Simulated scan of single mutants.
Amino acid sequence: MTAKPADTPTATPIVDQHQSFTCTPQRVWDGDGPIWCAEGPKVRLAGIAAREMDGTCRAGHPCPPTSGFEARNVLANALLGDPSRGSIADAPTGHLVLKGDVPSLTCVSEGSGKGSRTAAWCRSPAVGDLSCFMVRQKMAAKWDRYWRRHSC
């Protein structure tokens, strides 16, 4: 993995575009990320938009019908896969913390996802392509501007 520091004081690595990398999820914020990876990057799932945790959708973003909390919970469960492998706990910051034997994701970077996040297409051993999964579950909406020619 080739990574460069983001322009932030905490220097979260942004994975270079088209680079493959592994992400072992530790925390998740909402239905399109970020997902904090044990390896360093924070991943924003590419090609989709989910509601914010306060229930709003940002101007100019697609707006799915599902709440931010429901989308976040579905994503966290998909990341964990088999519930017997680990657990999900609420953090005081509003994140969900994934504990135990959390399976690693295989991701391909689209470059910066704004801020200190890497936009990426990620595959989970439990559900396959996470962006496709979240759209199929109606937890997120396809964002045509970023979806491009991606196929599920």
Rank of each mutant, 00 (worst) to 15 (best):
P62T: 09
R51G: 03
P125V: 06
F133C: 15
C57F: 12
T56E: 04
S124Y: 10
A38Y: 07
K4C: 13
A38Q: 05
W121K: 14
A141D: 01
E52C: 07
V102M: 08
L96E: 03
D90C: 07
P13T: 01
L45K: 02
G68Y: 04
A38N: 06
P13L: 00
K114D: 12
A46G: 07
G86E: 10
D54R: 12
K42I: 05
K4D: 10
A38I: 06
G100N: 11
T106H: 02
Q19E: 14
L98H: 02
L98K: 01
C37T: 02
P41M: 03
A141F: 00
V127N: 02
L98G: 02
L45R: 05
L130K: 08
V15G: 10
K4A: 15
D129R: 00
D82R: 09
Q19G: 14
R145T: 13
S84W: 10
S84R: 11
I48V: 15
R27W: 06
A59W: 10
V74C: 04
L79D: 00
L96P: 03
P64E: 01
H95Q: 08
A78L: 09
K142Y: 04
S20K: 09
L75V: 01
L96Y: 00
G100L: 09
V102Q: 12
K99C: 07
E52W: 12
R72K: 09
G47S: 07
D54T: 09
P5C: 03
A46L: 13
A89T: 14
A126R: 04
A46C: 12
G68M: 12
G115H: 06
P65F: 13
S124W: 15
L80V: 03
Q26F: 13
E52S: 09
L80N: 08
A46V: 14
A38H: 04
R149L: 10
A76L: 06
Q137R: 12
E70C: 07
W143G: 03
N77E: 13
T22M: 09
W29H: 02
D101L: 09
M134G: 05
G47L: 03
A140Q: 05
A78Y: 08
P25K: 00
I88W: 08
D129W: 02
V28D: 14
H18L: 13
E39L: 11
V28C: 15
A78S: 10
A141S: 04
S112Q: 08
A6D: 14
G55M: 06
P64N: 03
F133D: 13
L80K: 01
K99A: 11
H18F: 12
A89W: 11
V15S: 10
R85D: 07
G100C: 12
H95Y: 11
